[in-house]
Amino acid sequence: MQPDQTETTTERGGGDNDAPQAPVTGYRVLLPSEWAQIPLRHGTEDAVRRVLDEAFARIPADGPQDKIGPYKRELERRFRASVADAQRSKALDLYLPVKPMGDFTVGASILVSESVVPRRAGERHPAAEPTEVAVQLLARDGVEDADLSSGDIDGALAVRREHVAAAAPAKGAEVASRRVEYVLSVPDDPERWFVAAFSTVGGGDPRDELAEALVEWFDAVMANFRWSRA
């Protein structure tokens, strides 16, 4: 499943409303220009190099060279570590804010992945109801005390989970983070599920006003999510 970030949409109007639609081949999300997409299966290095080159170009050329060099190396190390961590999760795409939004750089990310529902031998489709399957997928990581809700996004069942993840220094998470995941059933393919996972540290507190505003922003992004079809 490939992403499509163009801002144009194709209206599906006229004709028979019951006519079959073309199969889903990808998805479309609208993000501000400050965010960059890092594909994690193909073209990763080109995307990483482009983001780093743009970041390095914003560093004042007349700055102290004994500080610029170490800063660049540390910036590249951290950025590549984030991408490598996302690749280990076998995700599809990583989205990061790579430019300041206003007067500050947002500490947040969006990780897009796919999940396949396991089934017993001989089963054509999962036996459970779609909402139950989505909740089971979210429950795989053992998160408790999460807020769950469900709805519809571009004709697909969507289950939303929100929670605060505690700091886990051993896993590279130095501070707690606010997380929101959307699990969407892929149309016409009951075994495939699309997952968009948003994470932010807010302004240092995952429950502060900045975190609240960013969660609302991500909800708006997902409200405008659309499937791409052949």
Rank of each mutant, 00 (worst) to 15 (best):
Q87H: 03
V83I: 11
F79M: 07
E76M: 08
P97N: 00
F79V: 01
F79Q: 06
V83F: 04
R77L: 12
A81L: 11
L94C: 02
L92Y: 00
P97F: 04
K72F: 07
K72T: 06
E76Q: 13
A81P: 05
T105S: 14
L94R: 01
S82F: 00
A86T: 03
Q87S: 05
P70D: 07
R80C: 06
P70H: 06
A81W: 01
D93H: 10
K99M: 09
D93L: 09
T105K: 14
A91L: 02
V98S: 06
T105I: 08
M101Q: 14
V98E: 04
R78V: 11
P97E: 05
Y95M: 06
S82Y: 00
D103H: 13
R80P: 06
L96Y: 01
E76R: 08
K90C: 09
E76D: 11
K90G: 08
L75C: 00
A86W: 03
D103C: 09
R78D: 10
F104C: 05
K99P: 00
R77V: 07
P70G: 04
F104Q: 12
F104W: 11
Q87G: 06
K72I: 09
P70M: 05
K72W: 03
S82Q: 15
K99A: 13
A86N: 00
V106Q: 13
A84H: 10
D85Y: 10
V106I: 15
L96A: 02
P97I: 00
L92R: 09
Y95K: 00
R77S: 13
Y71F: 15
L96Q: 02
Q87Y: 07
R88H: 14
K99Q: 13
P100M: 01
P97K: 04
L96V: 09
K90A: 14
P70I: 07
M101F: 11
R80D: 04
V83G: 05
V106F: 05
K90R: 14
F79S: 07
R88V: 08
V106C: 08
R80V: 08
K90D: 12
G102C: 05
R73G: 11
F79L: 11
D85T: 14
P100V: 03
D93S: 15
L96K: 02
R88D: 10
R88W: 08
D85P: 08
S82M: 13
D85A: 15
P70V: 07
L94K: 02
D85Q: 14
A91P: 04
M101V: 11
Y95N: 03
E74W: 09
A86R: 02
L96T: 01
R80Q: 09
F104K: 15
V83T: 06
L96S: 01
R78N: 14
V83H: 06
Q87T: 03
D85F: 13
D93G: 04
L92F: 00
F104R: 15
R80E: 11
V83D: 04
A81Q: 13
A86H: 03
P100N: 07
R78K: 14
R78L: 12
F104H: 15
P70Q: 02
L92D: 09
S82L: 13
D103E: 11
K72Y: 02
D103A: 14
Q87E: 10
R73S: 12
L92I: 13
K72H: 03
A84S: 13
